[in-house]
């Protein structure tokens, strides 16, 4: 199964995206905890896409593609806003969350922890794509 959507860069769409991916995850046979993992990972990518990539400009859009089979879900998020390289980032300091200078940087950490695959590329046309995959254990 495959579904494709376009959403405006508005955090108000996050709840809807959470519902869509939960339905897909359920059809693919994931349990509630696994669906929670997938929802969080996708929410983090979409939040970054909306806020960092597209600067919450409601006139800009990003594309979401959700595809699944029994026991596996693959999600693609395409966006052409601010360029960035996730390799440049450090891990968050989990020991000192309450002391550290900033409280950020958890989003991509969750993504790596919760999904079986999470990769990022920038096409020659400047389109940034995240691809995240989860399989049933």
């Amino acid at each position: 199964m495959q579904q494709s959507y376009n959403f405006p860069a508005d955090t108000a769409v996050l709840a809807k995206i959470g519902e869509l991916v939960a339905n897909a995850g359920r059809s693919a046979g994931f349990d509630d905890i696994e669906i929670g993992d997938i929802q969080l990972a996708l929410d983090e990518v979409c939040t970054n896409t909306i806020i960092h990539g597209l600067k919450s400009d409601h006139s800009k859009k990003f594309q979401l593609v959700i595809q699944w089979n029994q026991g596996e879900i693959e999600i693609l998020i395409h966006e052409s806003g601010e360029p960035f390289d996730p390799m440049d980032l450090d891990d968050p300091n989990l020991e000192n969350l309450l002391e550290g200078p900033s409280a950020g940087g958890l989003g991509l950490y969750f993504l790596r922890e919760l999904m079986d695959e999470a990769d990022f590329r920038i096409g020659r046309d400047g389109v940034k794509t995240w691809r995240i995959v989860k399989r049933k254990a």
Binding site: L14, G18, G36, E44, T47, L98, A103, G104, L106
Partner: peptide
């Protein structure tokens, strides 16, 4: 039913400030 890093960040900032 759901929290993301954006919610956690508020929890962290408020707890830190209160303490």
């Amino acid at each position: 039913p759901f929290i993301s890093s954006a919610g956690l960040r508020v929890v962290i900032i408020i707890a830190r400030e209160l303490r």
